[in-house]
Design a protein around this nucleic acid. Structure first.
Length: 317
DNA sequence: ACCGCACCCTGAGCGC
DNA sequence: TGCGCTCAGGGTGCGG
């Protein structure tokens, strides 16, 4: 990249590409991963990786750091795709870098200042104009520098549920192979074909990445509310029509979230932490005891498969 | 094939 | 004030 190619970097530095992902209500599901992909792609694609810094080996690194460094150095990123909740970077030698953000993963450009990158105390006390650019901490597990000398790309993940793996050219990854069709593309018929032979709660099927890839806890609850189905409803009792409506709801909430996420993070993070505006539209998730926005009944919370599920006892059956 | 559950991790939020 | 406890959650893997 020539000197004039730098023009885009200064503008990018003040931009937070970090979507959500602080605690509970900000899990990276399909929309958050997709928004991250769109924001991070310009800072990745076409650049030559010059240096790789990591933290100590851990199960976060499916490829051990020393090997990861050897494989990435000198490579040019040629594309950045999303597969379910995974990001997949293609490199110029045909190898690929697989990234999963886990629960708390944050992928962003060096120089980003985001309240979500700070401690809760700092978020509460710092005014937006006081936000410092984020400095790498013990949770910043991967730092890529580039031959153009521009800003680095960092991957931070406090709980280390995220994953980084290098895939040799042509290497098939079991995690990717297991994924069902992308949640934005799955059809009602496909969902019904699986649901009809599963006796577990329908929510469990929505969260099964092998059935449809990309739905997490928040959007599963929201889509079920929109469809009027309780999360506890046994999957095999759903009609084909109900499955079609459910899939349509899933796709509606995912698309809506991509829209609001994309716009809200385009240039600034609101001081009250309300970026990733979809949370304002949440009807049930994390609203236990609060009135249903449609009928006023208190939202209920139950546990399904070790995970919380929220629903309106009047609107959902 | 299907299903339930323990596990990985760390910070927030609670009770005392 | 501060300690210790519990909880949250995606994905994996194991035992039934």
């Amino acid at each position: 990249m020539g000197a004039d190619g730098f023009a885009k970097w200064p503008a990018m530095q003040s931009v937070s590409i970090c979507v959500h992902l602080w605690q509970k209500p900000y899990m990276p599901e399909l929309p958050e991963v997709e928004v991250t992909r769109r924001k991070i792609a310009p800072a990745l694609v076409g650049r030559v990786i010059a240096g790789v810094r990591t933290t100590a080996p851990s199960y976060f690194f499916l490829t051990p750091p020393p090997l990861l460094k050897r494989r990435l150095k000198g490579r040019t990123v040629t594309a950045l795709a999303r597969v379910g909740k995974y990001l997949l970077a293609t490199l110029d030698d045909g190898s690929r870098l697989l990234i999963h953000l886990g629960m708390t993963g944050q992928l962003f450009v060096q120089g980003s200042s985001s309240l979500r990158l700070l401690s809760s105390t700092a978020r509460a006390t710092l005014k937006p104009e006081q936000q410092p650019a984020f400095k790498p901490d013990k949770h910043t597990h991967l730092r890529l520098s580039f031959s153009d000398g521009g800003p680095e790309v960092w991957f931070r993940d406090t709980r280390k549920f995220g994953k980084v793996k290098w895939l040799a050219p042509g290497e098939r990854d079991a995690r990717l192979a297991k994924l069902g069709p992308d949640a934005l593309e799955v059809t009602g018929a496909e969902f019904h074909a699986t649901a009809r032979r599963r006796r577990v709660p329908v929510k469990t099927v929505l969260l099964d990445q092998g059935v449809l890839a990309g739905v997490g806890n928040i959007y599963a609850d929201e889509a079920l509310f929109l469809t009027g189905l309780r999360p506890t409803r046994k999957a095999n009792t759903l009609s084909r029509a109900q499955c079609s409506r459910l899939v349509a709801s899933v796709q509606r909430v995912l698309k809506r979230s991509i829209e609001t996420g994309g716009s809200s993070i385009s240039d600034y993070v609101a001081p009250d932490g309300q970026d990733g505006a979809y949370q304002d539209e949440r009807m049930v998730y994390d609203r236990e005891g609060q009135p249903c926005k449609v009928c006023g009944a208190p939202i209920k919370r139950v546990v399904i498969g070790q995970r919380s599920a929220h629903f309106c006892p009047k609107c959902q059956n």
